[in-house]
Amino acid sequence: MKILVCISKSPDTTTKIAFKENNAQFDENNVQYIVNPYDEWYALVRALELKEAGGGNVTIINVGLAENDAIIRKALAIGADDAVRIDADPSDALYVAEQIAAYAKAQNFDLILAGKETINYNGSAIGGMISELLGLPYISLATKLTMAGNTATIEQDIDGGTQVVECDLPLVISAAKGMAEQRIPNMRGIMAARTKPLTVVSAVDSAKLTAVKLYTLAAGRTECKYIDASTPEKLIELLHTEAKVI
């Protein structure tokens, strides 16, 4: 089975956020990047498990500039066979999806996995876009994935519960929690990652339909109002009369 796993990077959640260029750009100075957890923990690890069980090849793909190579090597250390970086600034979701779809079209992947969402932008969009561009079925927010021959059985989160669906390959899936368990790269993986093939591909022509004009830091909450532990009923009163939420 030929599997493509879409990988993005995101700042570690504990990163202090700052902007530059009149708040029109994210300031990457001193930002510690990680592989987006949904991509690494769930999409990539499940792809590797499927390969280990049934053979095949796992390719990582990222749309980004040269500085992303470090993050791609991190993902390779977990165990993929090879990686592709499409050399472009990934600022619009449809633009990113068009790059990945253009590459995938010529390659006949059986399975394309994306993460549920990036934890910095939470779009949850790119997997669905790729599926449309390739005319493939899309199964969003998958929490379990098993294969029997050419047929995938998938459990996915839906409104108010979960459902089990079946679909023949090829298809596109977005991976949510439950799909696999996080793997910690070992020394051998890290060493091997250094020499695994990382192909840089130039971008195809495509329009960017959205762009960030302005970032604004979220306003912190006003001071916390403390209620003495001996009079918790006061809290209920304040929630009713002051906050007016109950």
Binding site: D92, L133, L141, T210
Partner: peptide, 22 residues
Amino acid sequence: DFTGKAVAPRLSARIKAGLVAG
């Protein structure tokens, strides 16, 4: 939500409409 996350991106790619999600 669940449906929006599945359908809006497909429609965006289908009709080439810019999407702001969330």
